[in-house]
Design a protein around this nucleic acid. Sequence first.
DNA 1: AGCCAGATTTTCT
DNA 2: GAAAATCTGGCTA
Length: 224
Amino acid sequence: MCSEKVLPSLSLRSLPIAPSAPENQLPGVRRLARRELPIDTEALARYLVGKTLVHQTPAGLIGGRIVETEAYVVGDAACHAFRGQTPRNRSLFLERGHAYVYFIYGCWFALNVVGGKAGIGTGVLLRALEPIFGIDAMRRRRPAASLRDLTRGPGRLATALGIDRHHNGLDLCGQGSLWLGASIRPVGTVGVSSRIGLTREAERLLRFYERDNLYVSGPKSLNR
DNA sequence: AGCCAGATTTTCT
DNA sequence: GAAAATCTGGCTA
């Protein structure tokens, strides 16, 4: 079922950050600067595990710890940029730290952090969060989901945070309403596996996750 | 707990 | 016209 159709009134948009934004009430969450992001996309995917994703919405601050990512790299047939630039994937060719949001399976949005230098076309899919901020607001967007399933999977993550095509191309390292934050707690062991849901280049080990974290998606066999 | 079918629409061939 | 970086509910391989 498409949550867009079920809950059209809950499709909230971003708002600009006010000077007294609630992020000031979260001293542990510092915005990441672009220079902190590894230029290599595989390194970026590993680096982002344990970092924070935050979205300031009219319903409040929503976000959590990134616990699962996948890298889509240069020369990778599974990467949306593999066959060159098109209207759909053009934001993948921005400088690293921007958002690439795409619509998939007729139902869902998925959020990527663009990797590499401008013009290259690589990214990191954010596959799962550990919910930390705004859990009530997430539940309102996904009323049928258990806490564990609120943000476990790329489509669920985007829905729970209110991310859609309006966020495509935004700078996640700027002063906007959607941003990457530093770790709020040390990251555990980072596991590596093949990526999920692919037909092409399915064997490459480009998925990264925090081991033993309850909020990681995928079959048990991939999460050892 | 695990597997399967159906939903739904954009995008490119 | 087919495939797609998925999710949900229902059924039991």
